[in-house]
């Protein structure tokens, strides 16, 4: 699927929401997955028919926690739209939570990496960075927790983000020292050069690949607005 340059940021933001919903369903076994559909005329649909935002409104929603969706599809598919809105509210609550909870970090980490994957898949410069890589499975974890988020890709497949125990050898492992450091990283307050040097994170495995993904993640993080 081709995503035009002017739609990449809202699309990546929407995929972050989808990833957050996937992780919430995975952790709490409730709610609805907000699968993303890019529509014409700069509209994005979340969770099937009903909840649809203008690209610019979606970016407002992810940065402030509120934006007005399109009303006609909403009233036409009210029940579906309503469950999608409930999930959005749940995501907002989790991402803006002040307390450091494992589940919250897991959701935020998966959401953030989904934005990175969107850039890795659809941004020309980021794609070029990974063009010589055959495959990769980078495991992100937080020491002392069971958080395990996987960023994977292969030559013929797009980058994807999964979570949980996967019975494969990682290509590289990034371990945050604790939930606070992970939270800082998700919020853009982690020094990728300094953090590992001071023991805030441990990196191992294929570091050149990790370096590339890290660079892409910083590009994505800079571009995608966030409520965090």
């Amino acid at each position: 699927m081709d995503v035009t340059k002017d739609r990449l940021v809202p699309y990546a933001a929407a995929l972050s929401l989808e990833a957050a919903s996937l992780e919430i369903v995975n952790l709490f076994h409730i709610g609805k997955i907000l699968d993303v559909t890019l529509l014409d005329n700069y509209y994005i649909q979340l969770g099937g028919k009903g909840l649809c935002f203008k690209d610019t409104n979606l970016l407002q929603a992810v940065s402030t926690g509120f934006a007005v969706p399109r009303l006609i599809p909403l009233f036409g598919n009210f029940n579906n739209a309503f469950t999608s809105i409930l999930m959005l509210l749940k995501i907002k609550k989790i991402l803006s939570a002040k307390l450091l909870k494992t589940q919250c970090i897991s959701v935020a980490l998966r959401a953030g990496l989904a934005g990175t994957a969107a850039f890795a898949n659809h941004d020309v410069r980021c794609r070029e960075l990974l063009s010589n890589e055959k495959e990769g499975r980078i495991l992100f974890q937080v020491y002392g927790t069971d958080i395990a988020i996987w960023f994977s890709f292969s030559k013929n497949e797009l980058c994807r983000v999964d979570s949980g125990v996967i019975d494969v050898q990682p290509t590289a492992v990034f371990t945050f020292l604790n939930l606070k450091v992970a939270r800082n990283a998700i919020s853009g307050w982690f020094d990728h050069l300094g953090g590992p040097a001071l023991g805030e994170a441990k990196i191992s495995g294929n570091l050149p690949l990790l370096d590339k993904i890290g660079y892409i993640s910083r590009i994505a993080q800079k571009a995608i607005p966030s409520i965090i």
């Binding site: 020094d191 050069l193 300094g194 590992p196 040097a197 990196i203």
Partner: peptide, 28 residues
């Protein structure tokens, strides 16, 4: 080492850069 590096982070981007950056080796 850690104390110096923490000071460096405030005044040198990344603390130490290039091929001798800690992350290029075994940081801890």
């Amino acid at each position: 080492s850690d104390s110096l590096f923490s000071r460096a982070l405030k005044v040198i981007p990344g603390g130490i850069y290039g091929h001798v950056a800690p992350i290029a080796g075994l940081p801890r």
